[in-house]
Design a protein around this nucleic acid. Sequence first.
DNA 1: CCGCCTTCCGAACGATCGTTAGGTTGTGCA
DNA 2: TGCACAACCTAACGATCGTTCGGAAGGCGG
Lengths: 190, 190
Amino acid sequence: MSARRTELTRAAARLFAEKGYHGTSIGDLAEAMGVQKGSLYAHIASKADLLWEVAREGAAAFHAGLDSVPEEGPLVERIRAALRAHLRVVAEQLDVATVFVREWRYLEGERREEFVAERRRYEERFRALFRESRELGELRTDLDDASAALLALSAANWAYTWLRPGSDTDGLADRFTALLLDGMRGYASR
Amino acid sequence: MSARRTELTRAAARLFAEKGYHGTSIGDLAEAMGVQKGSLYAHIASKADLLWEVAREGAAAFHAGLDSVPEEGPLVERIRAALRAHLRVVAEQLDVATVFVREWRYLEGERREEFVAERRRYEERFRALFRESRELGELRTDLDDASAALLALSAANWAYTWLRPGSDTDGLADRFTALLLDGMRGYASR
DNA sequence: CCGCCTTCCGAACGATCGTTAGGTTGTGCA
DNA sequence: TGCACAACCTAACGATCGTTCGGAAGGCGG
């Protein structure tokens, strides 16, 4: 992919995150590239292609984050690593993460289904860590690992609205992990 | 406000939540009302008015939810009540809640600023419960009531994506509260 | 029965949308 | 030096957008 084409994808991620997919026109993208709008079609076949590309980039980034989580070791550490990885992606690729979390639903047809499956797979990998925690008896969420996973995933998925690039995402992830494990009552004392 | 006008607001909330504000045309709204698109302007002055109205309705619903939280009593109970109230609004007015959480950003000018202030005020009321928890010493989140509040607010704000009408929102809120208080380690044993 | 008021129709408006096409430029490689 | 090709321009396409307008139907109170 040419350098110019990559620039266009970056501009698309930024504008889709800022103004929404339907709120961003081809003219807006052309202006961001310093070019007439017709000229963009030397690089793409349609506007929808750009959304698809950014959404896939997001999926790849988040999955790559989970890939870095160790397959062995205490589940507590693996949960902490997963949260760290997720928040790091959000902070370092905020535009892409925003499209991954919020704008993907404007995908159409087969692409949409493919994305939904990929997104579900990501959340399932996340949830699995909590389920294993219970099954292996490392944590005592006897009835409710699902709620704990939902709480963690909510914080992860909502992060794009408040996380700013340059934040201490590892510290943030660790505080969330501590809260999830020991709660407000026990948090300060451990 | 006439009955027909109320119907239009309901249709707008539903379509804005389903397809997004910019993804919903006046033609779509007219079709949902079984009417020619020009006819809608007997009821509204502009499409933006509908977004404004639904967004305000959402703000009113969520604030009313918090108003029902007791001003006295253990903060743990007040936090539980706040979570219950929020999830109840999401489940019972899913479309309106979706616009309140996701579509508000397409508001423009003065209205947008007014909404942002109202939204900030809501989250601040929510956060205050956690801050007071620490200040009054009822909970030992010495360093980090802010993270606990963020975790709770994330779950609340993300709920519109997975909560379905008819869910046991009180039970859900109670499980979240238990987790926030005692964490996964302590959850099952108390 | 009259007149008002709400509601809707049908047609049109200018603007903007995403996209196409033919022609021009500049750069790098054979 | 000549040629290929990526990049861009200019102009226009048909479609759809939000909105306007004059008129007509219908119900309801006076």
